[in-house]
Each structure stands twice: as structure tokens, then as C-alpha cells.
Simulated assay, not measured.
Amino acid sequence: MEKLVDDGLVSSIGVSNFNHAQLERILNMAKYKPVNNQIEVHPYNAQTELIAWCYARNITVTCHTALGRPGLVKGEPNMLEEPIVKAIAAKHKKSPAQILLKFCVDRGCAVIPKSINPKRMKENIEISDFKITLEDIRSMEQLNRNWRHSQDSFWSCFRNHVHYPFNDF
């Protein structure tokens, strides 16, 4: 990746799903530090400490799976139905999805929601006309369980059968 920067093919390097120990290891040895860490962030996996750690080192954060994956895997929690999220949505006259996106954006993160539904895509874009309060953010952070969609679901089948060298970080 560093050669790509040297060759002028990319301007910066980002990483995905790195914890602070993995990032620290890279920062201590890399010619070019990562400028972004893409991580799973939602109220059940608030990542408050990791986000702060990244910001303290000028690493931006992009949130994935911010809306959860409702209905994809039976038994996984549906954050769109979380009572606290629904209450905050009602208070702001917004949808639960918009509140979950603002949970990332109003904490200074970029967010990449996935949808193939044009109505939901439009709704996901329309989040710039309000802010959630610090109290709202803290209420959602209190829901933290350090629970990841990717650890208990579909993706775990791949981790169990393939060894990746970077798993040793």
C-alpha cells in the first residue's frame, strides 16, 4: 500500500476493523500512517474509546453497519426497534434509521449506510436538518454491549475456515 502512495496512485491509506493495538503497531512501523479506520459502530457497539483514540491521532473514522442488519440473520437484534432509539426518533420527529446515522455523524464520523430501497436511500441522505443532543448520544452509548454483527452471524463462518496473516496483530 505504501508503494501505491510513493507511485502517486493513491493519496492516502485507510484500514478497516482495526483496534487500537493493531493501529498502534502500524503507526510504529509504517512510512504512511492510516488516515481512516472503517469500523462497525452502532449503539450496541458504540466504540467510544476507539473513536476517541483515533481522533487523538488524527485518524478519521468511518462507521459501517450503523443501521444494523435488520432481518438478515434470525435472532440478531434490530436496532431500528430499540426503545431508546425509537424514543429519540419520536422526540426529533425523525425515523430510527436517521437517529442511528446521526449517532455516528454527530460524533464526528463518516457513515456508509447500505440500502437498495430508493425511499430509504432518500431518508438516509436527509439527516442534515437536525442534530441529536449530547444527552441523546450518551443514552445510546449506554446501550453498548461491545456486540458486533459480524462476530455472531454470517461472517463468522469465514473466520472459522480461513487464516488471515493480519489476524495475528
Rank of each mutant, 00 (worst) to 15 (best):
D6V: 06
D6P: 08
D7F: 11
G8Q: 10
L9R: 13
L9D: 12
L9M: 08
V10G: 02
S11A: 10
S12M: 05
I13N: 01
V15N: 03
N17G: 04
N19C: 12
H20A: 12
Q22P: 02
Q22E: 13
L23R: 06
L23N: 05
E24C: 11
I26V: 15
M29S: 15
A30K: 12
Y32C: 03
K33H: 08
K33L: 07
P34E: 09
P34K: 04
V35T: 07
Q38Y: 05
Q38W: 04
H42G: 07
P43E: 02
N45W: 05
A46I: 08
A46G: 09
T48A: 15
I51R: 00
W53K: 05
C54F: 04
C54N: 06
C54K: 01
R57N: 06
N58V: 03
I59K: 00
T60N: 06
T62G: 05
H64S: 11
T65V: 12
A66D: 03
G71V: 00
K74T: 05
K74Y: 03
P77N: 05
L80E: 05
E81C: 00
E81P: 00
I84V: 15
I84P: 04
V85G: 01
K86H: 06
K86P: 05
A87V: 10
I88H: 03
A89Q: 05
K91D: 12
H92R: 10
K93N: 06
A97K: 00
A97L: 03
Q98L: 01
Q98P: 02
I99L: 07
L101D: 01
C104T: 07
C104D: 08
V105G: 07
D106Q: 12
R107A: 06
R107N: 09
P113S: 08
K114I: 05
S115M: 10
I116K: 11
N117R: 11
N117D: 13
N117T: 11
P118F: 03
R120F: 02
R120H: 11
K122T: 06
E123N: 01
N124S: 04
I127F: 00
S128T: 07
D129K: 01
F130D: 07
E135N: 14
E135Q: 14
D136A: 13
D136L: 07
I137D: 04
I137Y: 06
R138Y: 11
S139A: 15
M140L: 15
E141V: 13
E141K: 13
L143S: 14
L143N: 12
L143M: 11
N146Q: 13
S150K: 00
D152E: 08
D152A: 07
S156R: 14
R159K: 10
R159F: 14
N160T: 08
H161I: 10
H161C: 09
V162E: 09
Y164T: 12
D168G: 11
D168S: 15
F169G: 14
F169W: 14
